[in-house]
Design a protein around this nucleic acid. Structure first.
Lengths: 89, 89
DNA sequence: TTAATATTTAGATACTTACCTAAATATCTA
DNA sequence: TAGATATTTAGGTAAGTATCTAAATATTAA
């Protein structure tokens, strides 16, 4: 699977897009993210894994918590490299 | 399913992205598109349907052929409305 | 109107995915 | 070290998806 396919698959789910939007405001631990959803922690971990695979987020342990952060650069690269093809201006 | 989810799902497949890239060069009938792939016509029709559902392409019959065209505006809207959120400049 | 061409529809199958429950791991605190 | 907290891993299931073959539809040409 190409990197682009992995990224689009990651974005093709509303839960994962909402996670990205939360992380755009600020980095936060899994538990704080979980408060915004009604799915179980294992399901959220599944989504974190796909977002990590797409390199859209990073994680860092801080004590008992795992802090997730958005990797803005991957989004930007995608816009620059792929969508520019289809952009007028 | 939201419109954005439908569009990202449509883009999350290499065959469909290649169809879009072909149509970006010029509109063409299903058969001409098919020459670039090794999958069967019904499989291609399946991909056309998903791209149409995402409003990324349009079709128009011309005699025996169905001519497909790219809807650039949908791509542009998506870049403007969604990705701008994540874009620095 | 019959045959040929272009494409889609119908239906089946193997694979993938999003979700769950139960159990495991990692860290902190008493 | 034992217990509590935060998160992940393992394993299962129902629903979705990409593909195929066979049949149907639409159009053109003989």
């Amino acid at each position: 699977m190409t990197k682009l396919t992995i990224v689009f698959k990651a974005l093709a789910d509303p839960t994962r897009r909402k996670i990205l939007e939360l992380l755009k405001k600020k980095s936060m631990p899994a538990g704080a993210i979980a408060e915004h959803f009604k799915i179980t922690p294992p399901s959220l971990t599944h989504h974190f894994n796909l977002l990590k695979q797409a390199d859209l987020i990073s994680q860092e342990r801080q004590g008992q918590q795992i802090i997730y952060s958005l990797n803005l650069s991957v989004m930007e690269e995608m816009i620059d490299d792929y969508f520019k093809l289809f952009k007028k201006r």
